[in-house]
Design a protein around this nucleic acid. Structure first.
Lengths: 245, 245
DNA sequence: GCGACTTTGTGCGCGTATTCACAAAGGCTT
DNA sequence: AAGCCTTTGTGAATACGCGCACAAAGTCGC
């Protein structure tokens, strides 16, 4: 037992690998889709195809939850839905607050995928007086001053931060101080939080940048078939020479 | 040389690991932030802290791009910004079309993080006649019928799909047929595409579900301290017994 | 009731990612 | 000009994730 073992709470406490956890929601969605089509039983091969993964990986993932399949037959859809939901904690309600009601915050507030999975949006908060008081997706936006009260009163357990980058860390500090230990961050900054607080980050432009990398690769890689586009309004020119020399 | 080698185009062609590519945008953002503060030089330790990663990992990541640091000193911020931008392909413009202008599509259309990184939104498309013709973020929404024309005319190289789940695969097939090889998918479905097409997926509710998993874990894990919330409106009750027996 | 067939669950090998730890390298001070 | 000090770049060790391939297990047809 190395002393570093306590750094990975995840693997140690209960043996479900992070990679598996990240896929369970995908399986769950595929299962719901099958359920709607009235399918009662599914093989790992079929479900894996629907989820876009290798079937052995699917079986191994599911085996971490226990043995819920029947050999020679497959998995009972309804049962599996329940087991995965339970493992993910979707059989209970999660109270969510959305902070920052700009374009993205509005989209999140109106996003149907939350409510349908046990996530209840219990508060919309913003610092801008022009936004506070507005009704968005059936709820009234409240002032950020009430953040701590609101978290306590309504039992908020997950904070969604959709503020501008500059405000995100401050808001994060406040929600953490108020006892929230799970944060979903849409602001383009790295949030620093104390141990015990989980932060997940969704960054729209990072995904595009990764795509751009691969797209460029298909075209021949940087500096090769793709010279800088124009006369040089955006890049420090002296480096182009340095690179190609 | 195994026959499976051609399956991973990425590693084989040019030695930048996928995990590294995914972090480069994060470094880039941290560097931009340093640049704004007037910092000219940064050590791997400082930059790693700003990006939220281990400093050895940062150095190894950067070493894949070449040796751009000075021992005893660190990295020149401006130089590094340029090298990473170049590697990611951000020194050229990428023409993006956004398909589906619901809440999320609108947010994406108005998202500042695109334009500032060389992504030019050249088209907004929707199938809904009530939305077509609307002006969003300074651009007029066009009808999805014009999809193929528009891709060809404007040289769209990346498609962003923000349609409802049911429409996504159809739209995807069309953009791929029109020659687009990079797709960013916000619809909650697994898109199937031919080889050579890159799809990245952003799923808002999946992130929340992963948070819920960890939050539940902190509270004692499923089935332990957290019984089902109410009398049973949402879960198949017979399985609760089966699980605990 | 039995045998063939299907499908699960998993042991194993392989490649990738991460981290430590240190030698090489360069700047800075005296 | 020489040595000290800082920081990079990377070899080596470890951990992790993935997918093949197969034995175990259970069903279904006859």
């Amino acid at each position: 037992m190395t002393p570093r073992q306590n750094r990975n709470r995840d693997r140690a406490e209960r043996g479900i690998p992070e990679a598996t956890v990240a896929r369970l929601p995908v399986y769950l969605r595929a299962l719901h889709s099958l359920q709607e089509r009235g399918v009662a039983t599914v093989s790992s091969e079929e479900l894996a195809a629907a989820a876009g993964v290798n079937s052995a990986k699917l079986r191994k993932d599911l085996s971490h939850l226990g043995s819920y399949g029947t050999r020679g037959v497959g998995y009972e859809v309804e049962y599996l839905v329940y087991q995965i939901s339970r493992e993910l904690g979707l059989t209970q309600d999660w109270v969510v607050a959305i902070i920052g009601l700009g374009n993205l915050g509005r989209a999140l507030a109106g996003y149907g995928g939350f409510a349908s999975r046990g996530f209840r949006v219990a508060g919309l908060l913003d610092a801008d007086d022009a936004i506070v008081g507005q009704e968005i997706a059936g709820k009234t936006v409240e002032h950020i001053d009430r953040l701590e009260d609101l978290i306590a009163e309504r039992g908020v357990s997950i904070a969604v931060i959709a503020t501008p980058a500059g405000a995100a860390q401050g808001v994060c500090d406040r929600v953490v101080a108020a006892g929230v230990t799970s944060v979903l961050n849409f602001a383009p900054v790295v949030l620093s939080v104390p141990d015990g607080v989980d932060v997940r980050k969704v960054d729209l432009s990072i995904e595009l940048q990764i795509l751009a990398f691969h797209e460029q690769r298909k075209a021949g890689g940087p500096g090769e078939h793709v010279p800088l586009p124009d006369g040089g309004t955006q890049g420090p020119e002296q480096y182009v020479e340095a690179v190609e020399a």
